[in-house]
Lab assay of single mutants.
Amino acid sequence: MQRVNMIMAESPGLITICLLGYLLSAECTVFLDHENANKILNRPKRYNSGKLEEFVQGNLERECMEEKCSFEEAREVFENTERTTEFWKQYVDGDQCESNPCLNGGSCKDDINSYECWCPFGFEGKNCELDVTCNIKNGRCEQFCKNSADNKVVCSCTEGYRLAENQKSCEPAVPFPCGRVSVSQTSKLTRAETVFPDVDYVNSTEAETILDNITQSTQSFNDFTRVVGGEDAKPGQFPWQVVLNGKVDAFCGGSIVNEKWIVTAAHCVETGVKITVVAGEHNIEETEHTEQKRNVIRIIPHHNYNAAINKYNHDIALLELDEPLVLNSYVTPICIADKEYTNIFLKFGSGYVSGWGRVFHKGRSALVLQYLRVPLVDRATCLRSTKFTIYNNMFCAGFHEGGRDSCQGDSGGPHVTEVEGTSFLTGIISWGEECAMKGKYGIYTKVSRYVNWIKEKTKLT
């Protein structure tokens, strides 16, 4: 034993070699072989497995989906700052455009905790909710729209109204504003409101030439003092309507412009014939205590009207009353817009006519005020429907199939267009061939041609 100890002390290297040989010859039971080890760690190889990531292109799944990435790591994937920024906006807080917040056709661009709407022409605001041009839906104005110097929408209202708090709607500024039905039992019968379409306001006024200088022999019209197929109006439903009495009662109609003036057809009036105007009328054979009678003290036909040349060209006249009318729910003026808007309103496509005229061709006159909704007829169809001249200051309205029309005794009465609950004068009943005849239409004086003249002559002093 002493000898062994001496050998170990003198030859430590020998001992180490012996131990190493023993270990190498022993069977290893701690580690699995290569094949079995792979069965336990069965993990798919990654895209760049075996390579240094710093030297390969980034992978979106590896960089940002398996674990949260930084902007720089995302930049490695896209290799483009702009594309990385677009991805980053949604990656950080989701897609803010998912709810489609942009209105009126706006395009949404996502941002971090926010979004941006790219608005089409005519709109602005956070969600493109603000109209900035009158060309689109009248700028959301209830009545009139004008573009300011910086191309912003400025709404306005006709006389007797003021802008509401929203700067879009119009509200009454006087007790009985024009064009409004205020009798409670008839307010439910107000005709369907007309909503502004998209309009090209630059070209809204037709490029028409008034044929002022045409000389033409007097034409022989049949029954051209021209509501057939209409309905009984309720008291106060058309408070701007008046009836004219002269040699015979209810020979023509008219509309209240203001307390002192009536507008009617020029062919209705004769110099030297006494005319009485009755406002607030409903049943011409009954006294309903809503009527107001006034005498006409002055007749002003349009300066281009000449019955000797043509009885229905420039067929418009103004009547001055001896005493002002007292405005109330049964006696209310009709609204008159400017030339541009009167023309736009007419193009809405349908209007209402009213009167006490004959209820059928050569038949009896109506006792109760009649009204009828009539569609506008395109000019080409209008011209083809008659052998008589249709001037540019006239328009056609009615039904091709016949059966409904204005008729004798309705002449001078109103053709009105309702705009968001307020009625505007767009025409004056003038003439036609018979009444409600198939293929024939009622012919009306186009008020847009005469609004400046009306307003100039009827100013209240």
Results as ranks from 00 to 15, higher is better:
residue 422 T to G: 01
residue 48 N to Q: 07
residue 372 L to D: 14
residue 349 G to V: 02
residue 388 F to M: 14
residue 335 C to R: 00
residue 89 K to D: 10
residue 339 K to I: 09
residue 62 R to V: 10
residue 100 N to Q: 12
residue 28 C to K: 00
residue 38 N to H: 11
residue 242 V to F: 00
residue 8 M to T: 14
residue 407 C to H: 06
residue 99 S to I: 10
residue 284 I to Q: 07
residue 461 T to A: 13
residue 446 K to F: 01
residue 17 I to E: 00
residue 78 F to W: 10
residue 170 C to E: 01
residue 101 P to T: 12
residue 113 N to S: 02
residue 274 K to G: 11
residue 62 R to C: 07
residue 223 D to S: 10
residue 22 Y to A: 10
residue 6 M to K: 15
residue 203 N to D: 05
residue 104 N to A: 09
residue 305 Y to S: 02
residue 256 I to D: 00
residue 241 Q to T: 07
residue 428 I to E: 00
residue 160 G to I: 00
residue 43 R to V: 13
residue 357 G to H: 13
residue 458 T to P: 01
residue 303 H to Y: 13
residue 110 D to G: 15
residue 207 A to D: 08
residue 72 E to Y: 15
residue 330 Y to I: 03
residue 398 G to I: 06
residue 36 N to R: 05
residue 103 L to F: 03
residue 138 N to H: 11
residue 459 K to E: 12
residue 217 S to N: 05
residue 319 L to W: 02
residue 67 E to Q: 03
residue 43 R to S: 15
residue 239 P to W: 01
residue 119 C to D: 02
residue 110 D to H: 15
residue 111 D to M: 11
residue 229 G to I: 11
residue 32 L to I: 11
residue 194 T to F: 11
residue 285 E to V: 11
residue 181 V to S: 13
residue 58 G to I: 07
residue 91 Y to D: 07
residue 201 Y to M: 11
residue 381 T to E: 10
residue 161 Y to C: 00
residue 94 G to F: 03
residue 177 P to Q: 01
residue 326 V to F: 08
residue 363 G to E: 06
residue 15 I to L: 09
residue 351 G to Q: 04
residue 51 K to R: 07
residue 341 Y to I: 13
residue 276 T to K: 08
residue 227 V to T: 10
residue 353 V to G: 02
residue 359 V to W: 13
residue 360 F to K: 12
residue 309 I to W: 06
residue 239 P to K: 00
residue 99 S to T: 14
residue 435 C to I: 02
residue 326 V to I: 13
residue 233 A to W: 08
residue 289 H to Y: 03
residue 351 G to W: 01
residue 6 M to C: 07
residue 71 F to V: 15
residue 169 S to R: 10
residue 90 Q to T: 07
residue 98 E to N: 12
residue 89 K to L: 04
residue 241 Q to E: 04
residue 336 I to F: 07
residue 394 M to W: 12
residue 342 T to M: 04
residue 169 S to M: 11
residue 403 G to A: 12
residue 266 A to S: 03
residue 284 I to M: 05
residue 29 T to E: 09
residue 133 T to D: 09
residue 245 N to G: 06
residue 296 V to C: 02
residue 353 V to M: 08
residue 87 F to K: 15
residue 82 E to D: 15
residue 131 D to K: 03
residue 269 V to D: 02
residue 47 Y to N: 15
residue 92 V to L: 08
residue 189 L to K: 10
residue 456 E to N: 06
residue 9 A to Y: 05
residue 425 L to K: 00
residue 304 N to L: 13
residue 299 I to D: 02
residue 8 M to I: 07
residue 189 L to F: 11
residue 279 A to K: 01
residue 41 L to D: 15
residue 418 E to V: 06
residue 224 F to H: 07
residue 41 L to G: 15
residue 299 I to P: 02
residue 208 E to S: 08
residue 248 V to C: 08
residue 387 K to T: 14
residue 414 P to F: 15
residue 224 F to I: 12
residue 380 A to R: 04
residue 65 M to S: 05
residue 164 A to K: 05
residue 204 S to D: 08
residue 176 F to I: 06
residue 269 V to Y: 03
residue 425 L to P: 01
residue 114 S to Y: 06
residue 65 M to N: 10
residue 351 G to T: 02
residue 219 Q to E: 04
residue 87 F to Q: 15
residue 301 P to W: 07
residue 407 C to D: 03
residue 278 V to K: 05
residue 107 S to H: 09
residue 73 E to I: 10
residue 26 A to C: 10
residue 412 G to P: 06
residue 341 Y to M: 15
residue 322 D to E: 11
residue 10 E to I: 13
residue 229 G to A: 10
residue 192 A to M: 08
residue 118 W to N: 08
residue 282 H to F: 04
residue 70 S to T: 07
residue 70 S to E: 15
residue 458 T to H: 01
residue 276 T to D: 05
residue 4 V to Q: 05
residue 453 W to R: 00
residue 162 R to L: 08
residue 151 N to V: 05
residue 303 H to M: 08
residue 405 D to R: 15
residue 407 C to I: 07
residue 421 G to P: 02
residue 239 P to C: 01
residue 187 S to T: 13
residue 260 K to I: 03
residue 329 S to K: 11
residue 445 T to W: 02
residue 189 L to N: 12
residue 256 I to L: 04
residue 167 Q to G: 03
residue 216 Q to T: 08
residue 391 Y to G: 15
residue 4 V to W: 07
residue 360 F to G: 12
residue 53 E to N: 08
residue 130 L to Q: 09
residue 82 E to T: 15
residue 326 V to Q: 13
residue 70 S to N: 10
residue 215 T to D: 03
residue 143 Q to E: 01
residue 144 F to W: 01
residue 432 G to K: 13
residue 152 K to V: 12
residue 455 K to G: 05
residue 459 K to G: 12
residue 315 D to T: 01
residue 269 V to Q: 02
residue 51 K to G: 09
residue 254 G to Y: 00
residue 70 S to F: 11
residue 372 L to T: 14
residue 241 Q to V: 05
residue 350 S to A: 13
residue 439 G to T: 14
residue 415 H to F: 15
residue 144 F to D: 00
residue 52 L to Q: 11
residue 400 H to P: 12
residue 103 L to S: 07
residue 172 P to Y: 06
residue 398 G to Y: 06
residue 271 T to Y: 05
residue 160 G to R: 01
residue 160 G to C: 01
residue 18 C to Q: 02
residue 41 L to K: 11
residue 25 S to H: 03
residue 78 F to H: 14
residue 174 V to Y: 04
residue 361 H to R: 12
residue 418 E to D: 12
residue 290 T to D: 04
residue 435 C to K: 04
residue 275 I to M: 05
residue 356 W to H: 13
residue 89 K to T: 13
residue 136 I to S: 09
residue 160 G to E: 02
residue 42 N to E: 08
residue 241 Q to W: 13
residue 437 M to R: 06
residue 350 S to W: 14
residue 375 P to L: 11
residue 261 W to Y: 06
residue 201 Y to Q: 14
residue 245 N to F: 04
residue 151 N to K: 08
residue 114 S to Q: 13
residue 295 N to V: 06
residue 78 F to M: 13
residue 229 G to P: 08
residue 101 P to Y: 10
residue 100 N to E: 06
residue 391 Y to E: 15
residue 5 N to I: 11
residue 344 I to E: 12
residue 336 I to N: 00
residue 190 T to I: 10
residue 76 E to A: 06
residue 26 A to Y: 04
residue 183 V to K: 03
residue 133 T to G: 14
residue 293 K to W: 07
residue 334 I to G: 00
residue 390 I to V: 10
residue 40 I to S: 15
residue 187 S to M: 09
residue 231 E to Y: 04
residue 179 G to P: 01
residue 303 H to R: 07
residue 158 T to I: 07
residue 447 V to W: 00
residue 23 L to M: 08
residue 250 A to L: 04
residue 57 Q to M: 04
residue 367 L to W: 13
residue 7 I to V: 11
residue 347 K to D: 14
residue 171 E to H: 06
residue 262 I to A: 02
residue 294 R to W: 01
residue 287 T to L: 13
residue 211 L to Q: 06
residue 56 V to M: 06
residue 443 I to K: 07
residue 317 A to H: 00
residue 69 C to Y: 05
residue 405 D to T: 14
residue 35 E to L: 04
residue 168 K to M: 12
residue 190 T to A: 09
residue 237 Q to S: 05
residue 419 V to E: 02
residue 112 I to C: 14
residue 388 F to T: 14
residue 217 S to M: 12
residue 448 S to I: 00
residue 382 C to L: 04
residue 340 E to H: 05
residue 314 H to G: 04
residue 369 L to V: 06
residue 419 V to L: 12
residue 22 Y to K: 01
residue 59 N to H: 07
residue 436 A to M: 14
residue 127 N to T: 09
residue 458 T to S: 10
residue 264 T to Q: 00
residue 19 L to W: 04
residue 276 T to R: 11
residue 430 S to D: 02
residue 391 Y to D: 15
residue 393 N to I: 02
residue 309 I to N: 13
residue 458 T to V: 04
residue 166 N to E: 03
residue 212 D to S: 05
residue 245 N to I: 09
residue 215 T to E: 10
residue 105 G to I: 02
residue 168 K to G: 06
residue 357 G to C: 07
residue 453 W to Y: 01
residue 426 T to H: 01
residue 106 G to Q: 03
residue 255 S to K: 00
residue 255 S to I: 11
residue 267 H to N: 04
residue 183 V to G: 07
residue 325 L to G: 00
residue 440 K to F: 04
residue 305 Y to L: 02
residue 105 G to F: 10
residue 11 S to P: 08
residue 374 V to H: 02
residue 327 L to C: 03
residue 180 R to E: 02
residue 374 V to G: 03
residue 326 V to D: 13
residue 285 E to P: 09
residue 301 P to S: 06
residue 313 N to S: 12
residue 215 T to V: 09
residue 30 V to D: 15
residue 338 D to R: 06
residue 378 D to R: 12
residue 87 F to A: 15
residue 80 N to P: 15
residue 218 T to G: 07
residue 211 L to H: 10
residue 195 V to D: 11
residue 75 R to N: 14
residue 181 V to L: 11
residue 261 W to F: 04
residue 49 S to F: 06
residue 310 N to V: 02
residue 354 S to C: 10
residue 2 Q to H: 03
residue 352 Y to P: 02
residue 182 S to A: 11
residue 426 T to D: 00
residue 140 R to W: 11
residue 305 Y to E: 01
residue 409 G to F: 14
residue 76 E to L: 14
residue 365 S to T: 14
